[in-house]
Design a protein around this nucleic acid. Sequence first.
DNA 1: TATTGTTATACTCTATAACTATA
DNA 2: TATAGTTATAGAGTATAACAATA
Lengths: 154, 154
Amino acid sequence: MLSIDMTDALTSSPGPALADDASRLRLAVMRFSRRLRAERAVDTMSDGQIAVLGWLRVKGAHTLGELAERERVSAPSMNRIVNCLEESGYVTRTPDGKDRRKVNIALSDAGRDVITETARLRDVWLESVLSEFTPTERAALAEAESLLSRIAER
Amino acid sequence: MLSIDMTDALTSSPGPALADDASRLRLAVMRFSRRLRAERAVDTMSDGQIAVLGWLRVKGAHTLGELAERERVSAPSMNRIVNCLEESGYVTRTPDGKDRRKVNIALSDAGRDVITETARLRDVWLESVLSEFTPTERAALAEAESLLSRIAER
DNA sequence: TATTGTTATACTCTATAACTATA
DNA sequence: TATAGTTATAGAGTATAACAATA
């Protein structure tokens, strides 16, 4: 039977070490996301709503299907998120001129304001934690952010 | 040493850069966790169940309250998770000898088998992604795993 | 007929409040 | 009275299936 050394770091060799690294990374990310969720009780926007507004702010208008694919949720789930945002006046729906089946979803002025402020509020806790880290550790987390995003897009 | 894109990097100065880093890290982790969730359709165990079995395997028996605190969920939520695991025969409940209010939850033999196999299945995808990364990138992710765990424990 | 978006419905996970048993 | 665990209930988020409009 295999005995796996839990102290192993990531190595360039394949096998048990790699499987263990994958497992540890998965568990760490899941715990982290739950911890982050525990900090969001102060505001009223869901993870999905904030992710969509943040994405629209950076990348501009997208169709519902594009947003669903981007956030890795089903079309009905994304529709529900967009409905909430529209009711709040944070996004607008505009039928596409060329393909009238499509609907372009864009950030309103109110949406732009609220994503800036809400994201700030949600980040207060994480920011305070990061401020206590060393520059080296923060650089490592910046690197990780990039790598995690790359993995998530696969 | 790590190669870091300075337009994205965490810097040692406080202020907007730090807030932006926190925001980006948060969004990346949330997307990653959703992506990971999408890979679990093949099996029937929830994130919480897997996290608990994995923790019990490494750390041995714990009370319900300890597990709830560890996983950052409420006691009723953890109770529900443990109920499912007990019905499946993967954990056992044993009243504590010294304080009869407490209940020790321990991995059964079947639980030990299933966590080993299930974790392996769930890690197949992530492992295949990691195998295509460079040793430097994988070292960065190992470092991130440690840092994310530290943050989650705050 | 295929695709985009939407609605209807049900399921999972989570939390708060209330309850039981023990300290 | 306080604490550990459990039960009852409700809310948020998600998915699949079915439907409508357009290509």
